[in-house]
């Protein structure tokens, strides 16, 4: 049975822990994978995919050692294999420019500024995952309880025979 993953890329262990913890409501359906930099994130993704798993969303910090989160997300967007992944930039201080670049080039779905609010993070991730599920999942049903139920119901209503 393949699992669907949330990938968190953040170099500071404390912040990583906190993000992962805030995403726990999603663990009923999704699994969380963490990585400390872009290269590590690529390794993790390769490993997950080779195990038949899927990555639905990547939350990346902007200021990562080595490759920037923004550039990592742009690279994800440019690779057809990973284009469908929802991309969220978590930024402590990314300038306006960086954010705009990420939106333009990485098709960035959202950005969250640090310090973040757990509820807002969850609602952003929920929205993005819902979007991912609608576009990519074979059936929306497994996700109704965790994500945006009414929206998924709408989808179901619009294509009631596919489930």
């Amino acid at each position: 049975m393949s699992d669907v993953f949330i990938l968190v890329v953040e170099d500071e262990p404390e912040v990583r822990d906190a993000i992962a913890r805030d995403l726990e409501p999603f663990t009923a359906v999704f699994r969380i994978e963490v990585a400390e930099d872009a290269a590590d994130a690529r390794e993790a993704m390769a490993e997950l995919r080779s195990g038949g798993n899927e990555v639905a969303i990547v939350l990346a910090d902007h200021l990562l050692p080595g490759e920037h989160g923004t550039d990592f997300l742009i690279a994800l967007h440019q690779d057809p294999d990973t284009q469908a992944i929802r991309k969220v930039l978590i930024t402590g201080q990314a300038g306006h420019e960086d954010t705009i670049r990420a939106i333009n080039e990485a098709n960035l779905n959202h950005y969250i500024t640090k310090p973040w609010d757990a509820e807002r993070l969850q609602s952003v991730v929920s929205d993005e995952l819902t979007e991912w599920v609608i576009e990519n999942a074979e059936s929306v049903l497994p996700y109704v309880s965790v994500l945006d139920g009414p929206r998924l119901m709408d989808t179901l209503r619009n294509r009631p025979w596919k489930h």
Binding site: P150, R151, M153, L156, R157, P160, W161
Partner: peptide
């Protein structure tokens, strides 16, 4: 309507 579509419609009303 189909039972399925009806359920989806009405659950979208009920979930909130």
């Amino acid at each position: 309507m189909s039972n399925t579509a009806t359920t989806a419609t009405m659950l979208a009303v009920v979930l909130p």
